[in-house]
């Protein structure tokens, strides 16, 4: 057993979770919202997303006022987990931009 008194060198192992952080860049910014298709993701934590639906609807209205051509409202089923790959692919195929709404 290593003596851990002050006065001698000691090695300690890190108890913290260690993650590999992947570097990625931001998606290219849209030059204009005019005529674009934007997905609005309800990722709220409220139990059935009903309050999140209100904010999602409001956000859609704001985007349409700003010239967006089409808004796609989407519910993320598990707010704490990554979005499923198929949902990501579907969004990438349909929308030119995504707004994610989070809250508790």
């Amino acid at each position: 057993m290593v003596d851990t008194r002050v006065g001698q060198e000691v090695l300690l192992l890190n108890p913290k979770g260690e993650q590999e952080v992947k570097q990625s860049s931001l998606a290219p910014r849209l030059k204009s919202l005019k005529g674009t298709t934007i997905a609005v993701v309800n990722a709220f934590r409220d139990p059935d997303r009903s309050n999140g639906d209100l904010v999602t609807r409001h956000m859609g209205e704001v985007l349409l006022r700003e010239g967006v051509g089409r808004v796609i409202p989407i519910r993320k089923q598990e707010s704490a987990k990554d979005m499923p790959q198929e949902m990501l692919e579907s969004l990438a195929a349909q929308a030119e931009g995504v707004v994610i709404l989070e809250g508790d």
């Binding site: 060198e9 000691v10 192992l13 260690e18």
Partner: peptide, 15 residues
């Protein structure tokens, strides 16, 4: 991955 480690010099109290 294996946990990382940190080596303390003798003048540092581990606690």
């Amino acid at each position: 991955k294996a946990a990382s480690g940190v080596r303390l010099s003798p003048d540092v109290d581990p606690v």
